[in-house]
Simulated scan of single mutants.
Amino acid sequence: MFVRGSVSKAVRTGVCGRMFSSGPSPLLVSDPDPSFGPATSMNMFSAINDAMKLTLERDKTAVIFGEDVAFGGVFRCTMGLRDSFGAHRVFNTPLSEQGIAGFAIGLAAMGVTALAEIQFADYIFPAFDQIVNEAAKYRYRSGGMFDVGGLVFRTPSSAVGHGGHYHSQSPEAYFAHTPGLKVVTPRSAIEAKGLLLASIATRDPIIFLEPKILYRASVEQVPTGYYTIPLGKAQVVKTGSDVTVVGWGSQMHVLNRAVKMAEEKEGISCELIDLRTIMPWDRETVLNSVKKTGRLVVAHEAPVTNGFGSEIAAAMQEHAFLHLEAPVVRVCGYDTPFPLSHERFYVPDVLRCYEGISKAVHY
């Protein structure tokens, strides 16, 4: 376990610099949609907090629970919510992920909007059976008579710079393999609030992965009101003509730097896509881009074997084979336990992603 506050301190003191670049550069940020109304400065953790606050205000059945959430949680995402809404709606649970998941499923089956926090994504595996064998199949096994709509598992995921093999994993592919679950991960504060509100509003169980290194990494003008970003719809962050580059979560900031490096050094025009939703993923947007560029690079922190990049590569080989000018390039973590002492070499950085882009273009 981390000492409380150590993660945010590490982010402030340069972990982001080691992961995202070798020099100073702003992270990839978004402009708020004017139609969403007035906006104010928020970072990702405060945007997530705001989304949950709005949910508690609008939905009187909504409850938030997990390990240490009553005082704000390790990353402070639930800070102030118990004081505002009471201990009967925001409360701590025993240190049992299986118990948290089972309790959440039971509440959701009774019509409650259950927002369960798993303290780190690495801790979700004791609850794996509950999530993939119960939550994911609840509607199907009852012939549609019952469901666990309104069930969201929030959990901090991905590398933070010093987490090692129990605090840095990216488990999205495990859950994307399970029919009945939706898997979502944001790259920024605006995206986090809109995607979380959309996840809460949908009537399917959701795994909402929050890249922990981004909680305090940047500030955006986030709309203060209620808004949603559609699930299952990728975003073309930057248009280009030579190669399609796909990522999600914190890897988007790495890819943004790599794309700029490729353009500056070699004049390569990159189309950058944020998948946003891992399952269901937006095959159409990626396919249309690959048909245009003829090349694809996918990057993620999870190990390369059976990482979700494999599914994207296979789908493009199946549906865009005659358009491809080069093999699909995957830039990923390695097939080893996540190494504490070599974390900066394990996580795909700007240079590795740039080399992947160059490899695809010059094949």
Score class of each variant (00 low, 15 high):
V350H: 11
A176C: 09
P24N: 06
L255V: 05
E117S: 06
I124P: 08
S341M: 11
L209T: 10
F20C: 12
I131V: 15
D33R: 09
A108G: 06
L95Q: 15
A62V: 05
R141G: 02
P38W: 03
I200W: 14
N288K: 14
I268P: 04
D122M: 01
A136S: 12
L296M: 12
Y363V: 12
A136E: 02
S241F: 13
R58N: 03
V222W: 12
G307M: 00
G143I: 10
D335W: 00
F338P: 00
T113Q: 04
A159M: 12
D122Q: 09
C77A: 11
M19V: 07
E343V: 07
A314R: 07
G249D: 02
L28Y: 13
G14I: 14
V184T: 02
A39S: 14
S158C: 14
I268V: 07
A315I: 01
T40Q: 10
I229N: 04
Y166G: 13
V243D: 14
V245N: 13
R295K: 11
S142C: 05
V286N: 11
L197P: 03
G163V: 11
G86P: 10
G37A: 11
K9G: 11
D129I: 13
S35Y: 09
D129E: 05
L56P: 02
D282G: 03
F36N: 02
I190E: 02
D147V: 15
V222C: 14
S168G: 11
C332Y: 02
R203F: 12
P156W: 15
E325K: 15
G14Y: 03
H319L: 08
G194C: 10
D122H: 01
S250E: 10
V329Y: 04
E220N: 10
V259S: 03
S341H: 09
M261L: 06
W248C: 14
D242E: 06
I273A: 01
I190Q: 02
A217H: 08
E57M: 13
F71V: 11
P348E: 12
A192T: 03
M252I: 09
T293R: 14
F321Y: 15
G163M: 13
D33E: 10
H167C: 15
C353Q: 08
K291Y: 04
V254E: 06
L275A: 08
L95H: 09
V222R: 12
G194P: 01
V222N: 04
T224P: 02
S168H: 01
E284A: 13
V183R: 00
H167T: 08
K291G: 09
A189R: 03
I312W: 00
K182D: 00
G180S: 07
V350Y: 07
I206Y: 08
G180C: 04
R82L: 01
S199G: 05
A114E: 07
T40A: 12
T285I: 15
D59T: 02
P24S: 07
R89Q: 08
P337F: 01
R216Y: 11
A173Y: 00
P32L: 08
A258Q: 04
E311L: 14
V132M: 06
T78E: 00
S157E: 12
G73P: 07
G333N: 01
P205Y: 11
R89L: 15
G23D: 07
L54V: 07
C77L: 10
K238E: 10
G149C: 13
E97R: 09
H323P: 03
H323W: 09
T305S: 15
L56N: 03
E271S: 05
